[in-house]
Amino acid sequence: MRARVGMLLVAALAVGGVVANWRPVHGGGADDRERPYIAAGQVGEAVSARSFEAQLVSVRGARLLGVGSKGYETGGVWILVRVRVTATTEDTAVRYAALIDDRGREFLLSNRFTQSLADGGRTFQPGIAVEGEIAFEVPRDAATSLRLRLASPLIDHRMDAMAEIEVPKVDTATVDKWATQKEAVVVEQPEVVS
């Protein structure tokens, strides 16, 4: 009898050791456990980010941006994404907007000027679609293949929803054309659309 109890005790300790030392795939750290819930989509699709839906309408690029009476030049290239945002269930704002390249680099919306569509300055009302451009300054080598990410929280995206939309790929010749363009491209301001 004592031998059985001893064997059961050893078996229980062995199982306990395995459970205590178990680690999920990729380490299972807080970043993996608490990552945002990303809903992915393509151009023209409405992608949900919990409190709003986002739709990528179009993309264009430039070397020089015209915002109000000022011009903003870049050593890389400006990427302007035209996005339609519709709040779904509550008043909300888009405070986080970034482009992610194939190497995982993150390029936040430019803070060189006010961008009322996606810097938290605009509150979206449920059911009312607003469309406008968001400008990003990216290196030329990143501009050919990007993904747009949008979320309501500015910083803490843990376990919250985030929309990710594939930006149409462009070739290097198109990026070079954008980067050498002489005339300023005017950023389109947000407007209500039907």
Rank of each mutant, 00 (worst) to 15 (best):
M1G: 15
A3Q: 14
V5G: 14
G6R: 14
M7R: 13
L8H: 12
L9H: 10
V10M: 05
A11S: 08
A14M: 06
A14C: 12
V15D: 04
V15F: 02
V15Q: 00
G17W: 05
G17N: 09
G17V: 07
V18G: 02
N21K: 11
N21M: 05
W22I: 02
R23E: 13
G27Y: 08
G27P: 12
G28S: 10
D32V: 11
R35I: 03
R35M: 14
P36S: 05
I38F: 00
A40D: 11
A40M: 05
A40Q: 13
A40L: 11
G41D: 06
V43T: 12
E45V: 03
E45C: 05
V47D: 04
V47L: 05
V47I: 08
R50G: 06
S51A: 12
F52W: 06
E53W: 02
A54C: 08
A54V: 08
Q55V: 15
Q55K: 15
L56N: 01
S58A: 15
V59D: 03
G61V: 07
A62N: 03
L64V: 13
L64M: 01
L65E: 01
L65S: 04
L65Q: 03
V67A: 12
V67S: 10
G68E: 07
K70C: 09
K70H: 12
G71S: 08
G71Y: 01
Y72T: 04
E73Y: 07
E73A: 13
T74I: 05
G75T: 05
G75A: 02
L80F: 04
R82Q: 15
A87P: 01
T88N: 07
E90N: 14
E90W: 13
T92S: 07
V94K: 01
A98R: 03
I100K: 11
D101L: 03
D101K: 08
D101F: 09
G104V: 02
G104M: 02
G104K: 05
R105M: 11
F107E: 06
S110H: 09
F113W: 10
F113M: 13
T114A: 09
T114C: 06
S116I: 12
L117H: 01
R122Y: 07
T123P: 06
F124D: 00
F124C: 04
Q125G: 05
Q125C: 04
A129M: 08
E133I: 06
I134A: 06
A135S: 01
F136P: 04
F136H: 03
E137D: 15
E137T: 04
P139K: 08
D141P: 10
D141M: 13
A142C: 12
L150A: 03
D156L: 14
M159W: 02
A163N: 00
A163H: 07
I165A: 05
V167M: 03
K169R: 14
K169H: 10
V170R: 06
T172P: 09
A173L: 11
A179T: 03
T180P: 07
T180W: 02
E183Q: 10
A184V: 08
V185F: 00
V185W: 00
V186C: 05
V187Q: 00
E188W: 02
E191Q: 15
V192R: 15
S194W: 12
